[in-house]
Write a protein that binds this DNA or RNA. Sequence first.
DNA 1: CGTTCCCGCCACCAG
DNA 2: CTGGTGGCGGGAACG
Length: 389
Amino acid sequence: MAALPSSSALPDSCSSRHHTYSRKQKSLGLLCSNFLSLYNHDGVHSIGLDDAASRLGVERRRIYDIVNVLESVGVLSRKAKNQYSWNGFGAIPKALQDLKEEGLKENCSASDGNDYAKVSDDEDDDERFSNPTGSQNSTAAVPKSSSSSLKAVSADNRREKSLALLTQNFVKLFICSHVSMISLDEAAKLLLGDGHNSSIMRTKTHTADTRKPAFRWLGVRGKVKNEPTVLPESRKRAFGTDVTNVSYKKTKAESSAYQGLNHCLNVQKLVQCENSSQEDSQNSQDQECERTSKSYQFGPFSPITVAKVSVSDNNNVKRSHDWESLSSTFRPQYHNQALPPVYNFQLFFSTLLMFDIVTFIALKELFSHYVEAWKSWYSEAVKKPIQIS
DNA sequence: CGTTCCCGCCACCAG
DNA sequence: CTGGTGGCGGGAACG
């Protein structure tokens, strides 16, 4: 509520250009990048959902999507209702490390069956099994007092499909294995605990179906020399033309900035994977968090003019930061090779971010097709969301 | 015309 | 009950 459209905050800039409604302008990816640029500044420590919603000119509901994903990788953490604290990108390496350990552990105990994720919350770990959940027996479910196991079941359902959980599992898929590329379908099956989850756990190129969406993990930080072997032009095309109905000029300026971007966590969405892969991709991802004293350039997050977010003077966004402490950064890339622009997703323009939220939403959708399969085993992984105090 | 994915209704649940 | 959350179906934009 509240969020009255209040008339698109779009002030002007593009003046009369509202002829057609465009989903691109409203994409979560874009919103996410704006969100990041809005808060990735000095002095920002806590974020209010309402504040974010109004400043970004969107409904609350949308903010939740953003926040859930960011929280999954440590960038944010819930402080209280309506309040999140900004941990920054520097928190990503650690969060990933935790996820990795967690994932490996789970993976280990799984062995025969199919249960890939057990998931616990995030770094804080948990141990807060407020719920007895003695029922390790599928169906039985948790007789939560009086009525209905039905209730419990639905609760579990909700949890197991949560965006945050999904996000973490998705990431684990990459960091806990050696594969560097996973197709969307594959990912969905794996995350569901499909019997052969191990198949991907071993390096297996698995030639994905020709032109279905897939993802490639670029690893956490890499050698970042100068401009790695990253695809040069496809990216340009992507940034230059696509998305960006909002403000060309700005974007343009930025695309150059991207050239030097180096990101640490980065899942690249691509289509039709030709294994050619101009590089290893997986070779160095082992040293994910390796610390280097080098300072990287952190890209200017978000251009777009969205709501009058900018504070006027800093509309310029700080385009470079010293993340020595971070030592790692993100490096968006696209791998379109020579594909017909059939699948031109909304490449995360917002990639600046890392991997876009849309991806997870999409996965979620796929999930619903298999959900039943993992309902049973999930019953034991009940727990409440983090609760920092 | 098949697929992607944004909108926002409304189920949930802590307070 | 109220208000914060966030799953999910549906239909419109996209390619």
